[in-house]
Nucleic acid binder design. Structure first.
Length: 221
DNA sequence: CACCAGGCAAGTA
DNA sequence: TACTTGCATGGT
């Protein structure tokens, strides 16, 4: 399965090129985006982030001191703005209380410790925690999302019944632990699904399907 | 018009 | 434990 996953990765990278994820200028912006994008189109998150920058709010201390109600108004375009404002404030308060508001302070903390701390916060679930670990802190964690499960199911690699931890284990146990690889792989799966694994019942035009015919690869690939 | 988008928590049986 | 529902904007 390791060779198969690496083959898929090579095909996707060849077809779509490097994705340059995460689309954020700083670790803080990536963390903020990870919370704002929960069940939300990225386009709407961009508007919210733009508003935050315009209000000089892409700053830990500024967010910490800003009112929850006022912050909700700033991030309105990202949807679920009341609950997301609370979640942002909760996460920022964690950074301030536990690390003096210094993201560099997270660098020396073991991955699993950090993950447990994130998950203990209300509003940070497995995908958000792992997105922050991988894309803001460059830790070798594989991010699983709705696209990942859809990809595995539509390509017959799994039946789609696995939970988050099981899907994550499928990738991490069959791939070298490399943050750059995990970064690009997840981004490529998202890119693939956004145009091919979406509603198409049989993944029409899927670059991986094309390969099956020409290279006589394994079934469903 | 309905449906979806890079989830999560709280409520119900 | 296994579902269901609330959260809300903006694009297709």
């Amino acid at each position: 399965m390791r060779d198969r996953l690496l083959r898929i990765f090579e095909l996707l990278l060849e077809r779509f090129g490097p994705r340059h994820w995460w689309p954020g200028e700083t670790p803080l912006e990536v963390m903020v985006g990870a919370i704002l994008t929960q069940n939300t189109a990225w386009r709407n998150v961009e508007r919210a982030i733009h508003n935050m920058k315009a209000a000089d709010l892409m700053d830990i201390t500024r967010i910490y001191e800003f009112g929850e109600k006022e912050l909700a108004d700033i991030i309105r375009p990202s949807g679920f703005f009341n609950i997301k404002s609370r979640r942002l404030k909760t996460f920022i308060a964690f950074l301030v209380d536990e690390y003096g508001g210094r993201i560099e302070g997270l660098e020396s903390v073991p991955q699993e410790t950090l993950r447990h701390q994130f998950l203990s916060l209300s509003g940070i679930g497995p995908e958000t925690a792992d997105s922050i670990l991988l894309y803001a802190l460059d830790r070798p964690v594989f991010v699983v999302d709705a696209y990942t499960k859809r990809f595995l199911r539509q390509h017959g690699i799994s039946d789609g019944e696995q939970n988050y931890h099981e899907v994550q284990g499928f990738f991490t146990s069959n791939l070298p632990s490399d943050s750059a690889l995990f970064n690009e792989y997840h981004a490529l799966i998202v890119r693939l699904c956004q145009t091919h694994c979406r509603k198409a019942p049989q993944c029409e035009g899927c670059p991986l399907e094309e390969d099956r015919g020409r290279a006589a690869g394994p079934p469903n690939l």
